[in-house]
C-alpha cells in the first residue's frame, strides 16, 4: 500500500482539516450541480443557452448569484417566530453537512468511517424534515405552512422506501459500513466471474430504482416537488426567505442532491472502485475522489433529468405511490434478496 495519507497529524489538526473539507465540499457541490444541471442541462433541454455572461459560458453565474444573495436584506416577516424562522435554514443545512461525514471517496479518504455509516447517513438525512417544518411554521404564512406540512408528510412517507431499498444492499454486503459495502462490491463475483466485481446495481436493480424514486421525493424535486410547488403554493416553506437564508436552502437542496447521488453510487455503483485495480491499493485514495465524482455526476444527471421532464404529482397520489407501490416492492425485494442470500 502506498502511504499517501500515512502521516498522522495531531487530532485537533485532523479535525480542522476534516471540518474544512466538509465546509468546502458542500458549497462546491451545490455550485457544480447548480451550474451543470440546473443552469446548463436544463437550458439545453429547453432549447435556450442559459447564463452566458458571467465568466466563460456563464460558469461564474452562481457565484455572482451567491454574492447577490449575501448582499440582500435579511427580512423577517412581522408575525414570524423569529428564532424558529432564523434557525430553520441552518438546521436543514446541518443535515446536509452531516451527510458528507460518512461518504467515502477512498479506502481511507473518509471524514469518519463509522461502522454503521449507512444507518447514520439515512438518519441524519431525515433531520432536514425538522428544519423544513420549522421554516413552514415559523414563517407565519399559510402557503409556507401548507408547504411545511406537505414536506413533512412526504419526507416521512419516502424515508421508508429509501431505507428498505438500502436494506437489500446491506443484506447482500453483510455490513452497514459504507466503505465495506464498496469493498464487498469490489471483491464480489457474478456467478463466479469477478472481473468487474459485483456492482449491486446488477443484482439490486429493483432497489436502485426504488432508491432513486425515494431520493427524488426526499429532495422535493419534480415529480414530487409539492412542498415547494411554485404554481400551487408559491414556493411552499421557502416563500418568506430571502438573502442568505434562502441561499442556505438552495445550498442544502443541491448539497443533499450531491450527497444522495454519492450514497447511491456507493450502494449500487461500486463507490470509489474501478475494475482492474486492487481494491486494497492506496492509489484509490488519490483517484477515488475522481471516480466518485464521475459516478455522482452520472447519478445526478439522472435525478435532474427527471426533474426537468416530469409534471408534478398530487399529494394524495404521491402517498399512494409510496405506500401502495414502493414499500411493497421494497419489502418484496428484501425477501427475495434474503432468500437468495441464504440459498446461494
Amino acid at each position: 500500500m502506498i502511504e499517501i495519507l500515512a502521516f498522522e497529524p495531531a487530532y485537533w489538526l485532523q479535525t480542522l482539516i476534516k471540518l474544512g473539507v466538509v465546509a468546502l465540499v458542500v458549497p462546491t457541490a451545490a455550485l457544480i450541480l447548480g451550474y451543470v444541471f440546473l443552469m446548463k442541462m436544463m437550458s439545453f433541454m429547453q432549447s435556450r443557452l442559459g447564463p452566458m455572461e458571467a465568466g466563460p459560458y456563464g460558469t461564474l453565474q452562481l457565484l455572482a448569484d451567491g454574492v447577490k444573495f449575501l448582499q440582500k436584506e435579511d427580512i423577517f416577516p412581522r408575525r414570524a417566530d423569529r428564532y424558529v424562522f432564523a434557525l430553520a435554514p441552518v438546521v436543514v443545512l446541518v443535515s446536509t453537512f452531516l451527510l458528507f461525514v460518512v461518504l467515502p471517496v477512498g479506502p481511507d479518504a473518509v471524514v469518519s468511517g463509522l461502522d454503521a455509516g449507512l444507518f447514520f447517513a439515512l438518519a441524519v438525512a431525515s433531520l432536514s424534515v425538522i428544519g423544513v417544518l420549522m421554516a413552514g411554521w415559523g414563517s407565519a404564512n399559510k402557503y409556507a405552512l401548507m408547504g411545511g406540512m406537505r414536506a413533512a408528510g412526504q419526507l416521512i412517507a419516502y424515508e421508508l422506501p429509501l431505507v428498505l431499498a438500502a436494506i437489500g444492499v446491506v443484506i447482500q454486503a453483510g455490513t452497514l459500513d459504507l466503505n465495506k459495502i464498496v469493498l464487498a462490491q469490489a471483491t464480489g463475483e457474478i456467478f463466479g466471474w469477478g472481473a468487474i466485481g459485483n456492482p449491486y446495481i446488477l443484482t439490486q436493480f429493483v432497489g436502485f430504482a426504488i432508491f432513486l424514486v425515494a431520493v427524488q421525493a426526499e429532495l422535493t424535486q419534480p415529480p414530487f416537488d409539492m412542498p415547494v410547488a411554485e404554481s400551487e403554493i408559491v414556493g411552499g416553506y421557502q416563500v418568506e426567505y430571502t438573502g442568505f437564508r434562502f441561499l442556505f436552502f438552495f445550498m442544502a437542496e443541491f448539497g443533499t442532491a450531491f450527497a444522495f447521488a454519492g450514497i447511491a453510487s456507493v450502494l449500487f455503483l461500486g463507490g470509489w472502485y474501478v475494475p482492474g485495480l486492487d481494491p486494497a491499493s492506496g492509489w484509490f485514495n488519490l483517484i477515488g475522489p475522481f471516480v466518485m465524482f464521475i459516478k455522482i455526476m452520472a447519478v445526478s444527471a439522472l435525478i435532474f433529468w427527471f426533474r426537468f421532464t416530469f409534471p408534478r404529482l398530487r399529494e394524495d397520489q404521491l402517498q399512494k405511490l409510496a405506500w401502495k407501490v414502493l414499500i411493497p416492492a421494497a419489502l418484496l425485494n428484501i425477501v427475495v434478496t434474503g432468500v437468495l442470500k441464504v440459498a446461494v
Binding site: 429547453q46 432549447s47 435556450r48 419534480p222 421532464t309 416530469f310 408534478r312
Partner: peptide, 16 residues
C-alpha cells in the same frame, strides 16, 4: 398548462 402542473420544459418550447 405544463408549468402549472410542474413541468417546466414545455412552456419554453411554446415560447420558441
Amino acid at each position: 398548462m405544463g408549468v402549472q402542473l410542474g413541468a417546466l420544459t414545455p412552456v419554453f418550447f411554446a415560447f420558441r
